[in-house]
Amino acid sequence: MFTYIARRLTVAVPTILILITISFVLMWSAPGSPFMGEKLPPPEVMANLEAKYGLDQPYWKQYVDYLTNVIFHFDFGPSFKFKDRTVNDIIAQGFPVTLTYGFWSFIVAVIFGVGLGVTAAIRHNTWLDYLSVGFAIGSQSIPNYVMAPILVLVFTLWLGWLPGGGWEGGTWDHIIMPVIALSTSYFASIARITRSSMLEVLNSGFIRTAKAKGLPMSRVILKHALKPALLPVLSYLGPAFVGMVTGSVIIDQYFSTGGIGQFFVNSAFNRDYSTMMGITILVGTLTIIFNLLVDVLYAWIDPKIRY
């Protein structure tokens, strides 16, 4: 087990290095400059800006400097766009936001997804099954940029229950709509995986035996069927959790949360290289950690798996 974890961790390091390298190469080949506005600064200012951010150095030196700062000082450098912020500042401010609404979305998605999936499996091939599956696919398929304006129309303008956006430190009323919009994009997958693995478990020998012994259905499900049925769900939850806590550009833009999700895309558009790199590394690292965590958890729950 420990050797397994150790082996996985040794893979993690080159993975992150490759990630940084890919981003660096893409950045260098990108046309446009982070300092370009509609009014292009004169060459002498441009030169100074490039000197200030080290862009006048040869590529290999920028690369080495960057790696050194990231690895030894945990410093992602200053943002190219926001003059009074470092990338560390941006992450420190935006990540807690997405972490908060992402975490709640995760909880909601798991509860809803598993509930819907189990219901559909128990009532296999009945209208309830079709309805659950239909609801899951439907809510996942409606793009968030359609869902968000409708949520605000209903909850803010018509009912006046919730503020239409903002974060204000993350009070509950600012969290609800982002959570609804984000969790619907994930719970359908959870529901579908739960449903099919539950169906399989319900058809297996030991459940048939349990049922034959006359145990009540609810007890069979909860005591015997749920745990093995959720194993496949677990492997989906790792990437899903990372996806949710790093937020979504649509959620951040439509609900003005100030979260990290929008920087992911906007920094590429703004040529804010340092922010882009910082967030790529953050997401990559989280993905590696949670994939590992899920695998360890998997091994721990399912004794059949040996590493």
Binding site: A12, I18, L19, L26, A30, P31
Partner: peptide, 22 residues
Amino acid sequence: MRTVDVLMSIPFMFVLILMLVI
């Protein structure tokens, strides 16, 4: 297969966006 493991942790949607931008 180790290469696949490595690639799996790369946010590809992001890379695709970058490629379309570039």
